[in-house]
Every structure is written in structure tokens, then in C-alpha cells.
Design a protein around this nucleic acid. Sequence first.
DNA 1: GGGAATGATAGTTGTTCCCTATGATGATCG
DNA 2: CGATCATCATAGGGAACAACTATCATTCCC
Lengths: 302, 302
Amino acid sequence: MNIRDLRYLLALAEHQHFGRAARACGVSQPTLSVQVRRLEELLGVALFERGGKAVTPTAALERMIGHAREAVAETEAMIAVARNQRDPLCGRFRLGVIPTLAPYLLPLVFAPLRQALPSLEVEPWEDQTEALLDRLRGHDLDAALLATEVDGPDLASRPLFDEPFLAALPPEHPLVQREVIAEADLAPDILVLAEGHCLRDQALAVCGQGGALSGALRASSLPTLLNMVAAGYGTTLVPGLAAGAAQDAGIVLRPLSAPSGRTVCIAWRTHFPRCAAVEAVGDVIAARLRGFAEGAAAGTVG
Amino acid sequence: MNIRDLRYLLALAEHQHFGRAARACGVSQPTLSVQVRRLEELLGVALFERGGKAVTPTAALERMIGHAREAVAETEAMIAVARNQRDPLCGRFRLGVIPTLAPYLLPLVFAPLRQALPSLEVEPWEDQTEALLDRLRGHDLDAALLATEVDGPDLASRPLFDEPFLAALPPEHPLVQREVIAEADLAPDILVLAEGHCLRDQALAVCGQGGALSGALRASSLPTLLNMVAAGYGTTLVPGLAAGAAQDAGIVLRPLSAPSGRTVCIAWRTHFPRCAAVEAVGDVIAARLRGFAEGAAAGTVG
DNA sequence: GGGAATGATAGTTGTTCCCTATGATGATCG
DNA sequence: CGATCATCATAGGGAACAACTATCATTCCC
């Protein structure tokens, strides 16, 4: 059963004339003639009474034609929806972002995204890496911005930009005197985020598992951590994009003697069909952050 | 666009597995695979995300699937309607009957029709010949019972049975003495129906254009005409099936010396697709009236 | 009865659809 | 870590389908 046949049917019922109906359908008269007859044979019912003068729908067709009309209409509606969805750079795009990145990166990239991909509705979702990966695997996200590379059978990722780490010191800290801080010097009184934050692991990896890691002082968010540092509880590493926020909190920032940092990536399901959207979003973010690493290492925010 | 493809689509969306969906559709897995892909290319949208593990409908498909479901459902409803209509001996059958026949014939044939064609809903429509033919041509009737043969480019007819005429006399009429009446003897004071009734023309044809045709005395229906005869206003010819009614009205009936009558036919449009129904109805009526002519000519009602 | 109009039929060609067989890839398990 | 299984994609071939042009049959009308 072909929708085309139903179109022929409706055209013939409307025009009551094979030639005109065929012209309306853009086919030859024999084509429509044969197809209608085939349909009649298939259904086992006479659909039209072919008089010498007029071609009239039978009572049987009258009862069927409503359904036929609906079937054609629904099919066309479906095709119309498909046509509207055709552009992968269109529609909702659920983008996960880790908490140590979201508040500092999103303000920078929202405007460029909106300009470059006006019909892509980017919906951010803030959560920690593992939760984001779960949601990504569960089709609850379309992509995620992470500070860790992902590569597996089902997920893939692509680096977008490097975010250098800066040493964060309370204003009265003795190390403030130095222009450049050695990572090891931070270790004794370093503060880190609560478990689950990738920044915690990265800071510890850079500075070594400092023994002074006081159990009571684990911040659950980066702003809290910055406040704790500003209040003199200890030092920490801040990612470059948070430099402005750190300074606003009254923290002194210093470059590291051996510059290190983390790589922000965009991750997606290997088989995600709208990878064009992932790519485009990644391009926009990478372009916005181009040259950021150097500037941030020198203490400037892009 | 084929409805079959939509079925594949729905099956795959439901099973989320090519093999099982294919089995549910009764096709091989490559067939379903290829068809779904073709559909995706046709629509220009990815409909499924083919992961290593699961096959999941995309957001685009989620928006389309309702329409697809509706289209399939409507198509199936249409096919179901067609299936129910497939039997031509089923459904409404609008049957025209001329007024001089309807009240006498229909009581005889309703029961046999209902028995022989239980799912055919015979709807009688009483009117004069010309009106019936108009309605027949206008598709407002499916067939008509007439006392005249019809043959033309658009209409055809078939004789069902012969209905003899009987001489109808008031009880006190002098001709009552005779066992058999000559047609010419009726002519002087014959009464006929109003114009438009075919029985009028037939009576006049049999008896000649009797000069005594009083303009004031034209009955508009056969019962009225019978009452007029019974009241002594004149004589007439009655069709055999009305013999009982005539006798009930107090009329004396006599056979004609040169037996004559009219042929009752069933008429239909040449191109009417349910001619099987016409034939069946005709068969039932003819069978019911078989041998009626002889009996009626002898004064008996079948 | 000839001509115009209309639908049906015939023959042909290109497309579509389905099958079986096979390939590619990822998951699973010893 | 390699073998095996599961799953989907691809290839090739054959049957069915749908489209066309050309032609025929019928009806209608003058």
C-alpha cells in the first residue's frame, strides 16, 4: 500500500476525471488508470463507477475516503516535521558542563554560539564528570564539556582548548612575594574540592598528595574554595577561566614555574547522529578561547 | 513514500533492534535495514542512533512518530472498511419501485429478500417511472422495479416476471355476466390513472383511446382508482398483483379474452459496480413470482 | 455515421524491493 | 588476549512494480 496510490485516489475522487486527475498528480492518464484499478483489486472493492460521462466514487469509497485523506495528511505532516528537523544545527542541544567550568566558560561562549548557530537551542546542564557521562550514555545529553579526555567504544571526545592552572594565594601568604610559584611549594597547605570534582584530582596530581590535606576543609564548589583561600585557610590551584572570579574574591594569583593545566574537551556518543552540531559547537568554543592559554598564563583573562 | 516503510519505522522504534523488528514485520533484517536507511535519506534526517548495543530513536523521530502511527492506523482503518465492503451483497441497496407495484409486490418479496440476502439492506423508494430513472441516473438509487423495459447507453434492464391485466368492473356492471371480457368492451367507460403513471398508458394501449375518457375522473393512485371503479364510475384494467386489493374493494375481476399484461423489470445503471446485487435481487423476486402469471390469469393470487 | 473525448490495454523500460550471502564491528568469555 | 557471538551494513541478483508512449474500444454529439 503506497501513499501515492491514495493520492491518486483522492485526486480522482475530486476531479471525477482520469485525465485531469492524472495531470493534477503529475502522471500520465494510463498510469493513474492502472494504479487505481490495482488498488481496487487489492482492496477487492469497486472504488469508482466508470460511466461514459462521469467517473463517480462508489458508496464504498465514500466510507473510505475520510481515512485515506487522513492517512495522506498525516504522512505529509510527518514529512513536514522531518523537513524542519533536517538541519542538524537546529533544535535542542543539551550540553553538559562540569561545575568548575560552567560559570566561567558559559558567559564567554553563549553569545558566539547564539550568533554562529542561531537555531540551535543550547541547553546547559551542570554536573560532575561521571554524572555527565552517565547522562550522555543514557541519551539525556547530546554532548558534554569536560576537563578529561574520553575515549571508549561508545563515547568520543575532542580537545577544544587548554586551560592553564594558576597558583591561588591568600594576600598575606608568604609566597605572594614570588613572581612565580613552584608546584611543590603549594602542596603543604593546598585546599581541594570535594570528591567527584575532576579539578580535585588534577590539583592533587600537579602538586602531589600534600600531607596537609585537612579532611574538614573540602569545598563543595569552586566559589566556596576561593572564599576559603581568600580567608587564609590555605592555597589552591585555580583554572585559568576562574582567574577573574578568584581576583574578585581577593585572591592573589601567580603563574606556576612549570606551567601546567587541563584540556577542556567536548565529548559525545560515538554514534550520535548530529555530530555536525557537536562539531559546530566545539568549533565556536575553540575559536572563542583561541589564544586564551597564553593570555591566562600571563595573568590576563581573554 | 510507502506505508510499509512506516511500519518498519514503528517496529524498529518499538523493538529497538533490527533483527527483532524485521521478524515482527515478516521481512529479513537487511531488508528492514536498507528500507529504514532509504527512508532516512529520503527525509534527510537521522531517525535512529545505531549504537553498538542499542538502536534508539532520535529526537527527530520522536516528533514524527505520532504522525507515522496515525498514518498507519488510518490506512489500516481504510483497508478494514474496504474489507467490510468487499461483498457486493452487503450494505444499503436503494430500490425504486413504481407506485402501482410497490404496495402489492413488496409485501411478497421482502421476506424472501431478507432470507436470501440477509446483509443487504433493501430500502424501497416509491415514485413514478421517470422520477425513478432520474434518481437512478443521479446515483440516488441502485436499481428500480419498473413496468417498462429500459435500454440506453447508461441504463439497462432485465425482465423479472409478467403481470397479466384483469378487467375490473363494478359489481352492477352489465359485463359482469360474461366470463371473459374483450378489451374493446372496456373502452367506452374506462378509467385510468393520472398522467405519469405507466399503468395509464398501458391500459390505454390495451383498450384503445376510449373516447369516454372523462377528464375529471383521473385517479392519482391505484387504490383511489379501484374505489372509483367499485363505486360504479367506470371500468378499468388492474394489474394482477393488485387483484386481491381490487376484490377487497368490492370490484369484480374478469380475465381478458386476449390475455395481455405488463412485464416487470429491474433496471440499473450499465456501469453500476454492484450489479451482482442487482442480479441477486432480481433472482429472488423472479423466483418468488414464478408461475404467478398463469395463476393470476385464472383469478388467483400467488 | 464521422469526429472528439475518454478510459482501457499493450509493450517497454527503469526503479524498487526483497532475498541470500558475506563483511565489519563491537561485546563477551575462556 | 584471542576466539566467538551478536548485530547491523553491504553486495549481488531476481521478481515485482510503476512509469512512459502508442494504440484500441467505447461513448457522445453533431
